[in-house]
Amino acid sequence: MDDAARLLQLVVNGAASGCIYGLIAFGFVLIYKATEMVNFAQGDIMMLGAFVAYSFIHQFGLNYWVGFGLAILVTALFGFLLDAIVLRRVIGQPQFAVVMLTLGLAFIFRAGAGLAWTYDSVGFNTPFTNKTVNLGGLVLGQDNVSILVGTLVLCGVLYLFFSRTRLGVAMQAASQNQLAAYYMGIPVRRIFSLIWAISAGVAAVAAVLLAPVSMIDVNMGFLGIKAFAAAVLGGFGSIPGAVIGGVIVGVVEQLSGYFLPPGFQDVTSNIVLLAVLILRPEGLFGKTIRKRV
């Protein structure tokens, strides 16, 4: 009985951190599908989002929800400008150039955040910090539950946006056939910048959701590596796959931390990544139909 409860708690904790990986992976996949670029700075954009939220909520003392909203907006705007000013110029360059550029940007973001804010670990108070919720005898931290609920709500909103709105469908269209999208009068470049904005905004949501369980520091973006494993697990082309892949990585990580000797937990995501690449390179949800370019 006790063991079962403990296990369930582990799974919930794992799923919660997995949601964060999934949201970062979402950004990887969204940008990749649209522009064929892999943005290795995605985790560090989340880190910037965390510091922006820290400024609004802790330094300026704004209400948590107001600060949350503003952090999303500011980070999304940052993503938009990042594409419009920097990344648009490397579209069509070899993959290698793009990888180097985004890795370089990640480095700059870390240094920039250290200078603009601090190299120390900081945090801010949330309505979910250090509270528990009792679900029929199962005691769970509100912090983890808020991550799960927040991710579900966000996924619902994103789903409706991409499937129901004209702009969302246009984003899909531009990702599937850029030339045809141009012929339809869709301003493809602006659409791509908006896709960067959404990816960055989602990363900011992940950052704020993560705040009650993790400190904010310049190196928190390294969890992007786990998110990358999640994206590969999901097939690197499937958006639901990325989020589900994130949850799987998170749960496996928690369980291996519990059942396996110390040290395994930190490398779980790498092992998952390797295993997927060797056993099933198209990912769990990979499509056999490749998109035409």
Binding site: V169, Q172, A173, Q176, N177, A180, M184, G185, K291
Partner: peptide, 22 residues
Amino acid sequence: PEGREIFPFLSVAENLMMGSFT
């Protein structure tokens, strides 16, 4: 265009909706 260049993963109705995007 030559080669049709439809949006393969959108539905027929969504393809037409994209035609009237502007």
